[in-house]
Design a protein around this nucleic acid. Structure first.
Lengths: 249, 249
DNA sequence: AAAATTTGTCTATTGATTTAGACAATTATA
DNA sequence: TATAATTGTCTAAATCAATAGACAAATTTT
């Protein structure tokens, strides 16, 4: 049991409804292994007592998780956990989307949603070592594992050097493969900054999340082996489906 | 501007109240630099239109942020951003609490909240390479920078090998210094797993957060240079005050 | 077959959130 | 000084969240 397993007290009058807080608690209990996979959840009356709320409030929480495909309720029998383990996404100096998930998912791919050419913002320009306002290509992509969205990335490339990378991405569905066409055989992750926040409306839609969901956010710069920046990217991972494993190197 | 800067539409009937969603949006806008520091926020009427809600709903959001010390409202003038920048906490194979924050905070320390001896859970036993049920020392600590809580850690040590580490922690206020007393001159971070969730009631209190706040969670194993596990730890960082910078991976 | 357990549905009531409108109080601007 | 812009306060109504109780429906246990 990680952390204090305390009286699970909920907070009222906080802008986050009780049923919503309870869905978080249940998800956490599943993740920590307190509610075993494929087993039944404690009955509604027991949960209501445990959380100190009315049975109907627990039912709202359960209904949301059923809707979300995490639980299945059967009248007369109980409510069962449909174990969807979180993917463990490796992150380190040689992070590649598809490589890392080997063995955890059967089918993985990266879908190109949007590509546009635009002037670089100050932040992007700094990351790529370009003058502010230089043209950059922005790619919006979604990563999927076994058909379920597991990441949502916005990445920028120097438009001069990588003209046509959008077409390559659409065709190959892989950043690594696309960069090879521009003579980049190897690249490294120079820096990664990590944060977390509530998913915005766009990510909710793209990642198929329920409102209020949390995303892990990485902001990274990829460079060639000799230190030349080639890609600046912000990636959002749904915290309920993904954990990031920092690989020692 | 990172990500799509879209019509900031909010989601209704989600268990997260609109004013609560708006506080998140405002915090995000500050973090991204859209609302500059020490400047005035757009007036309430403008924000209400932008988010598509009533002015009073925006006022609730602002009231929460004023309460939280992020904003200051002045009648007749406007609402101003006080916003302390987020700390950038380095994390890598040689992460030390105090070293990493050099130059970002004047005063930093680690406070021991609780220490108990208890039998190891399966998860802790696996992390430390002990038999399940072996006695371990659990330390609950809070990290502070300039008086503000920035981390909340739960860590476990083999009770046989590190008897008295609680006293050493209380005295020195440092894991590194305490381990030195047990002949551990150097240690490395073997693995780190990263996730995010809503803060539970205990962390809300210890980290001085408003309900609904998000925490970044790291689960790490520290080992001696020859690979012997010495510490298993789960640390929670308030996402609104801290970002993690992955270094030297 | 009967009893107990558990989820599903319904009605009613109370409290919190959101909208709406009006106007006061304070500060900046013309 | 007058006007405009902005935050602060109040009242009232509509909608959402939570509590309460009763009973139906399905399943398991006795």
């Amino acid at each position: 049991m990680i952390g204090r397993q305390m009286a699970s007290s909920l907070e009222r009058r906080t802008g986050v409804s009780l049923w919503r807080q309870i869905t978080d608690q249940i998800l956490h209990s599943i993740a920590v292994g307190e509610f075993a996979e494929n087993a039944a959840l404690p009955p509604e009356v027991a949960l209501a007592e445990r959380y100190g709320v009315n049975r109907h409030t627990v039912r709202s929480a359960i209904a949301a998780l059923v809707q979300d495909g995490v639980l299945r309720a059967e009248q007369g029998r109980g409510t069962f956990i449909l174990s969807r383990k979180r993917l463990s996404y490796p992150i380190g100096s040689r992070t590649r989307f598809s490589e890392g998930l080997q063995g955890q998912a059967l089918e993985r791919r990266s879908v190109l949603l949007v590509s546009v050419v635009e002037p670089a913002s100050r932040r992007v320009a700094e990351g790529l070592g370009l003058a502010k306002g230089s043209n950059v290509i922005r790619l919006e992509t979604r990563g999927e594992a076994d058909g379920q969205p597991v990441s949502r990335a916005t990445s920028w490339f120097d438009a001069g050097r990588f003209a046509g990378i959008d077409a390559a991405m659409a065709e190959t569905g892989s950043v690594t493969a696309s960069l090879e066409r521009f003579g980049i055989g190897d690249y490294l992750r120079q820096s990664t900054v990590l944060s977390a926040r509530h998913a915005d409306a766009a990510d909710l839609a793209d990642l198929d999340l329920q409102p209020g969901a949390i995303v892990l956010v990485t902001v990274a710069v990829n460079v060639t082996p000799d230190g030349q920046p080639i890609q600046f990217a912000e990636t959002r991972f749904p915290a309920e489906r993904v954990e990031l494993k920092l690989s020692a190197l």
